[in-house]
Each structure stands twice: as C-alpha cells, then as structure tokens.
Amino acid sequence: MSAPISAGHLTPAEERIRSGTVTVTGPQGPPVPEGEPVPDWDYFTNLTATWPLNVDLPGVLQDCGLSPAAAVHCLVTWHSSSTNRRDNSSPARLVDGDNRLTVAIPGTEIGGVLTLTARMVLAAPDPAPISPLAALRPGAILWQARRRFTLEGSGSRFPVVATSFAESGLAEGRRSLWYLSCAPDLDGSDTGSIRLYLNTDHPAITTMLNQPEAETSRTLAEVLRHDVVRQLIQTALRCEDLQEEHDHGEGTLGELFINLIRRYFPDRSLSDLRSQHRNDPSELEAVIQGLDRVLA
C-alpha cells in the first residue's frame, strides 16, 4: 500500500528547494495564503497565483546528476476541480536563489477547488549529464509541490448584480440606489425568484462596490442589507398563501420566507405578524430595525 513511486531519474533533495507562502490574489483583495478559502471569489473574479521559490540551483543540478549547463525550467500549473480545466504559466528558466512563479487564472474557467502545482522540469536534454541516471526527456519532472485553495464553500450567495439602471431601464432608468426584484411565487426557487440590482449610475453604489472597506461603504452596505431584510419580510407577509406549518419544499421561496420570519420572529405566529403588518406597518418596520440591529 505504501510503496513509493519511482520516476526513473534522479531528483533533488527536498532541502534544496524552499517554497515561500503560496498565495492567490483577486483584483481587490489581499493575497490569500494557501489552505484558506478565497473570500468573495466568483466567476467574474480573475485571480493571480504567486509561488515564491528559493532554490539552491547548483545543489539541485548536482542531486539530479545534471551538468551546470543543463536548462531547468520552472512553471506553475493550475487545475480547477469543477471545470476540470488546467493551464500553466510559461516555463521560466530556474535561477539560483529567489524565483517567483506567477500565473493569471481567468475566473470564468474555474470553480470548486483550485490546485496549484509548482514544477521544475528539464527544459532540454542535458548535453553532458554527470550521472547516467539523470533525467533525459524534455519536460521530465525533477521536483513538484502542490497547494490547494477552496474557491467555493458551502455558504449561500444572494443573487446580486451591478448594472446601470439608465441602460437597462430598471426603475424607469432613474438614479436609484438599488432594486430588490422579487416574484412572490412561493413554489419558485428562492434564488431564482429574487435578485438585487445595484445601480452603478449612483456614485454611492460604485463607491460601495469599489471600496468596500470605506466607512461610508460599510454603512451603506449595512443599510442595504437591512432594506433587503425588511422588503423580504414585508413581501412574505403579503403572500396570502404563505403558511408556516406547510412544507414549502427545499430551496423554494416559501421556505426562504418562513425561515427568515422564524429567524426574526421565533415566537410569533404568521397571522399575528400579518395583522400587525396590516394595522401598523410602520411599527413593524421599526421592530425589524431593532431586531436587525441596524448600525448598532
């Protein structure tokens, strides 16, 4: 069970090569180190992977039985589990000391788990190998190592799209902040029935999207989140055929509504909430604000 694999040629000792922290970086975020999930990644986020390598090149060549003239390349390969797609950086000549392998990874081609593999390969047959056991073939792998990054976790994502209202004609093309579209079809899928449109014509929205860490952006995002909550709850209460004891089915809007209401109002019945919603909707809103701890 535990027999190792023999490649048929000499390979370097591990201590000849030191990998720095391998990272992937989106256009905005800080570099994410190996082993971490990549936050906020989606299909539309391109990544750059960086693999620092410190190499004792003479030692490597010696271990491999190669002459000092041998050409050794290094490259980094990426593979995505969901798309089963692979590509690599162009092979670069390995130098003694610090090497830095980078590869650009198109977001639209990846998903699931991203595996990075750094490799040292023999670029061309060594004209005068020192050992008869040295690698011969071009591309022969002398050393490799892998790192894995989780792109997609189990958390849910809300359907959000940033778009120009003026161009798409949403909200009459006005300079609104956002629009929560919800088709109250309880048997429809949850994420298929709702979608949040953010208006890129509005400077506050573009700031929020481009500088999410800014104070104003955080405040706006918080208000936005709350607005979505209250709109969803209100829509839920307006749905006459929403019933709390009823099984609305996995992944349906009905289930989402019931879960949301239970989360905010674990002790209150739907009919109770509905009557408050009819009689004094404004107070109900205030209650939701309080429960939601907006800006608190």
């Binding site: 989106g26 256009p27 905005q28 975020g29 936050p39 906020d40 990644w41 989606d42 539309f44 986020t45 958390g155 849910s156 994502r157 809300f158 359907p159 959000v160 799209v161 940033a162 949850d190 994420t191 949040l196 953010l198 890129t200 573009t206 929020m208 999207l209 481009n210 999410p212 995002a221 936005l224 989140r225 979505v228 909550v229 969803l232 989402l256 949301l260």
Partner: peptide, 16 residues
C-alpha cells in the same frame, strides 16, 4: 466592482 458584488452577495447570503 465584481468583487464588491460577490462580497455583498456573501453578506446577504446569510439570509438564504
């Protein structure tokens, strides 16, 4: 902006 969008999608995702 795409990253900003996915960040927001994550934050709001808890509602789902």
């Amino acid at each position: 902006a795409a990253t900003g969008v996915s960040r927001l999608a994550n934050v709001l995702g808890t509602l789902l």
